[in-house]
Design a protein around this nucleic acid. Sequence first.
DNA 1: GTCACATCTGAAACCTATTTTCAGCCCCTG
DNA 2: CAGGGGCTGAAAATAGGTTTCAGATGTGAC
Lengths: 275, 275
Amino acid sequence: MTRSMLRVAEAVAGDPAGCAARTVTGLAELTGTSEATVVRTARLLGYPGYRDLRLALAGLAAQQQSGRAPSVTADIAVDDPLADVVAKLAYDEQQTLADTAAGLDTIQLGAAVTALAGARRTDIYGVGASGLVAQDLAQKLLRIGLVAHAHSDPHLAVTNAVQLRSGDVAIAITHSGSTGDVIEPLRVAFDHGATTVAITGRPDGPVSQYADHILTTSTARESELRPAAMSSRTSQLLVVDCLFTGVTQRTYETAAPALAASYEALAHRHAPRTR
Amino acid sequence: MTRSMLRVAEAVAGDPAGCAARTVTGLAELTGTSEATVVRTARLLGYPGYRDLRLALAGLAAQQQSGRAPSVTADIAVDDPLADVVAKLAYDEQQTLADTAAGLDTIQLGAAVTALAGARRTDIYGVGASGLVAQDLAQKLLRIGLVAHAHSDPHLAVTNAVQLRSGDVAIAITHSGSTGDVIEPLRVAFDHGATTVAITGRPDGPVSQYADHILTTSTARESELRPAAMSSRTSQLLVVDCLFTGVTQRTYETAAPALAASYEALAHRHAPRTR
DNA sequence: GTCACATCTGAAACCTATTTTCAGCCCCTG
DNA sequence: CAGGGGCTGAAAATAGGTTTCAGATGTGAC
């Protein structure tokens, strides 16, 4: 690529939307080159001519636009109208999901799924907001016929952890990676030979010392009106769903009938619809 | 809009991407009209000419493209590799969030927020997966200094509901809208004069009879490996977050110090980081 | 039924934007 | 520093978009 073509390419890369709004002549003037050079650059970039590059550019610009819906990325303010709050929260959680999915190590996930699928029993530790995630995972695993317990009480968690042995699984869920109340039972489980998994936003935190497999959740920015607990919960739940779905796939023969049975059992607890 | 212009407009609406790839003459031929008509249609649609319409069309096409990432929309199969499972689950939950945000009635939400902000006490009912969402909301409200309790035990829920009176708030969370165990306490609360809120995926279900305000969650498609509980939970949690954030805004004077205090109180429960 | 009017429509002229050509220039090499 | 290869932009050529205008079509009144 030559010097003047580089100038054009830079302009295009730097401001796709702006370039899409210009004609060949306009872009030539902007970059201080000629129409011919602009066309040549377009060819080099893999388009039949400038016209097509421009169309592609317009598409790119539109995508970027939609990516950052106006002001949605901004922090939530105390005086935001409710409609904005809804939009911003939804956008933020979507972002958290995307980050988590992108950052999740499928090797570690696969190892955790394998351990869970073959476990005699599974203990899950989590306190506070993470305690609810732990319960969610336990509920799901129970539904597919596994033996799983969520512990929010650190004392009971430890007393149960000593019962674990090789082949069992212990899962600690902590956003900070340094919640003593869940690290302690995980350590005990680890020492007793159980396979240990940590779901944490800080893979470099103390919890990882005792974790055979580490599943990383995203640590999105937080603020006063957007507590870390909110996005970490979203992130943790996605990991939990992935674990659950993975285990269901792995143990499909037994999981499918178990799921059907639990669905069946709940059916009569729903009152008939009014309309 | 005249007949031949309508033909052009339909072609554009029906296949934006295809039209973006055509020239005026091409589109005129495709629609069996003339260049002049195509240009006139473009003007009518609010563009200075066909050139600009075409650029806009290219943008639109690109957005649609990105919207449906290849195969991610497909159902999760038993033999999907884990990486696909992660992508599909994340995509699906993102979709659920978007749907929920789009379908949430901010008027109803505002009314619920107002009721919560001024409530003497708040009871929240939910069983099963929704029980965890109820607890999540209760945890959040407690953090900003409100009096909130989540009830998963239907008997205790009812016995507590009779204590409610005008100015108090009762919230029922049920995806199906017909879970007797949460409808009953909501009915009792309703009869005792409390302000009642339903968070449900079936606003036409029985639960709505006793709800002053109805917040609708999205009812995304489900399948064997993608239980309804998964997306309904995501949807419910977004609503909960919106409620929480709304109440925090509304009671900022008292909520902010309360949040800070609860953050402070937890700080010493985290062990020092290893690295 | 038919005439007058308004409106729509497309062929062709016109103009703008893009592409191609080509001569000059720069820079590298021997 | 002379020769040559490749880069560059002015200008011609062309493709694509826009405007004009005359004919077609439909509509309502008489």
